[in-house]
Amino acid sequence: MTDGNSSVVHPSVFILVGIPGLESFHVWIAIPYCLMYIIALVGNCLILYCVKVEPSLHQAMYFFLCMLSLVDLALSNTTIPKMLGTLWFNSGEIHFEACITQMYFIHTLAGLESATLLAMSYDRYIAICNPLRYTAILTNSVIVKIALAASIRSFIPTLPLPYLLTRLSYCQSNTVNHAYCEHMAVARLSCTDISINIFYGLVVALFIGLVDVILILLSYFLILRAVFQLSSRDARIKAFSTCGAHVCAVLVFYVPDILSIIVYRVGKSVPPHIHILIVNLYMMAPPMINPIVYGVKTKQIRERVLKMFRRWN
């Protein structure tokens, strides 16, 4: 099947295999995946609800948390429903255009989550290093500008990715050895040169992921320096506690990503299903864990949720 140019061959559909090598366990693997998906949906919706109805949460930190919850919801719905269909019902067929669209939003939303975590680290930096001017610096207009800048920074760099895939000819297999349409997993099915795909994918990863990690580490270096200058031990503990949930969110998001990169670049002898499981964890763990951590660490959210459950009972 061609796209109008006889030199470019596109399959009408791709076949997602799920987790190669573990096909006999797909049904059982899908059960925890489904539970993680449900927890992510319920948890992030509760975060959004609590911030909306609780006036004390109408401040920058929780507006960024809402942004994180929205990104997590979008990321979960972009990947997990199709993944569950593949694992449970062996319905791995996905149209070429749908695969390219899924790929674009996966990479874009992952970049937006990274940008949101960076914005939240800036919020913690202002809260601890310049607390008296917190509300003056992080006004509603500034929050909107940060959210807009994060969105632009995430959506624009990934715009070439669909073109880089549609320009390739797929004259070999149409079977994607992955649980979803990941950029390089699809590109490797091509029988034409994919060096540009490899190069641009690396550039985007460095531009988004590496820069964000460096800036987050810098913000925490400044935070730690400010905290250790506090004379009171209780003040230091309180300052550290305000960063606990964000540190957990950062680790949950970046550690599986870093492990995936290490396994892919270094561990050539590592079975493919190990790499796929790690990447799936990178997609599914943050949306599930983030609302749990912030729900436990944030008194107002915890009390609002408990109050809501008592009302139902």
Rank of each mutant, 00 (worst) to 15 (best):
T139F: 08
L118T: 14
Y122L: 15
Y104L: 14
E113G: 14
H95C: 04
T116H: 06
C99Y: 07
Y104C: 12
L138M: 12
F105Q: 01
I126L: 10
L118F: 15
A136C: 10
R133M: 08
I94V: 15
N130W: 07
I128E: 09
L118R: 10
S114N: 02
N130I: 03
A115R: 10
Y134D: 10
A98F: 02
Y125K: 12
S91E: 12
N130G: 00
H95R: 09
P131N: 08
D123W: 04
Y122M: 13
M103D: 14
S91A: 13
I137S: 01
T101R: 03
S121Q: 10
R133T: 11
R133N: 11
I100R: 01
D123A: 13
T108G: 07
T108A: 12
P131V: 04
L138F: 01
E113Q: 14
F105V: 06
I100C: 03
P131Q: 03
T139N: 02
H95K: 06
T108R: 01
I126E: 02
T139A: 10
A127R: 09
Q102G: 05
H107G: 15
C129A: 07
I137C: 02
Y134A: 04
N130L: 09
D123M: 07
T116L: 06
F105G: 03
A119K: 04
M120L: 15
A136H: 11
S91R: 10
C99F: 09
Y125H: 11
A110V: 13
Y104K: 11
E93M: 09
F96C: 00
A136E: 15
A115P: 00
G92R: 08
